[in-house]
């Protein structure tokens, strides 16, 4: 199968990027999208060109490392699929694919298709935890969780933090991600002690990171590889509003957004990497 790829190439955070056209004459429809880029990279390396940088790890749709826009859709045309799981069967001979990185100021670009998603980590760190007593291991089933609640928590916990929701959102809002993380703990009995503080802190952090506001458009859930429903956003809003109206002190946990890389990272040559 023949494909024309227009891939975003950008040396670093501070350089100008552009779409570069690559012609591929022998794409196997059994390949995944990432394998297709692997093949192209082999070719580029063979020619002495720099390969296209993209993130990947598990290649089985569970780690959340991979992701980019294909023809304007996050993770490409197949629903509930990450780009590592997207087979080239989804394209036809002669198709032309425009491949771009996620675009959001909270996801500063590092190189080519790789963006810095540490803002997500900070949202989780600000409130995505529960407190447990240390000591002996607790008895199993000491806290009863109804099946439907466990299922809902599991559905929300399926979020792999890929960032497609932000990428697809016209507002570049992180509402679906933050909502998923708030919901998956908030519906469980174990998540009740920090429920209000969690909503306040994670919402504050998402706002601090410079994501846009949610206008309930729904593009996020359509591209989400884990099909996280819009309901989690309503849940976040419910917890946030209840917490904000009832809080008695101004307590909230947030983390200073940092964009520099620690020494020893590959980007040590570029100390202003993503600031």
């Amino acid at each position: 199968m023949r494909l024309t790829l227009h891939v975003w190439r950008q040396q670093g955070p501070r350089t100008k990027g552009r779409l570069v056209r690559y012609q591929m004459d022998n794409v196997d429809h059994e390949m995944s999208m990432l394998e297709c880029l692997d093949v192209l990279n082999e070719e580029l390396i063979g020619k002495g060109d720099e390969p296209i940088a993209f993130e990947h790890d598990c290649r089985e749709g569970i780690c959340g490392s991979c992701g980019f826009m294909i023809n304007g859709v996050a993770h490409g045309p197949a629903r509930a699929t990450t780009v590592c799981q997207l087979t080239m069967r989804n394209f036809k001979d002669g198709d032309s694919l425009t491949i771009e990185p996620w675009r959001a100021s909270a996801f500063p670009l590092i190189k080519d298709l790789v963006v810095d998603r540490r803002s997500f980590d900070r949202i989780v760190a600000s409130g995505g935890y529960i407190s447990v007593s240390t000591g002996n291991a607790p008895d199993a089933n000491a806290i009863l969780v109804p099946k439907d609640i466990a299922d809902r928590a599991m559905d929300a916990a399926a979020c792999i933090g890929c960032g497609a929701c932000v990428a697809a959102c016209p507002n570049a809002s992180a509402a679906l991600f933050t909502g998923a993380k708030i919901s998956h703990l908030g519906v469980l009995p174990q998540g009740q002690p920090e429920r209000h503080l969690r909503a306040l802190s994670m919402v504050a952090q998402a706002n601090l990171e410079g994501f846009g506001g949610c206008t309930n458009i729904g593009e996020c859930t359509a591209v989400c590889p884990k099909e996280i429903p819009l309901e989690v956003i309503a849940r976040m809003n419910r917890d946030y509003i209840a917490a904000a109206l009832s809080q008695r002190d101004a307590e909230v946990n947030t983390i200073r957004p940092f964009t520099e890389w620690s020494t020893g990272s590959k980007l040590v040559n570029d100390p202003h990497a993503t600031s």
Binding site: E100, S173, G218, T221, V223
Partner: peptide, 19 residues
């Protein structure tokens, strides 16, 4: 805020589910 949140526009962006 929305403008600041996405300073670089997509070369191609589709709406697939929204009204």
């Amino acid at each position: 805020r929305k403008r600041r949140a996405r300073p670089v526009a997509y070369a191609s962006k589709e709406s697939i589910a929204s009204t």
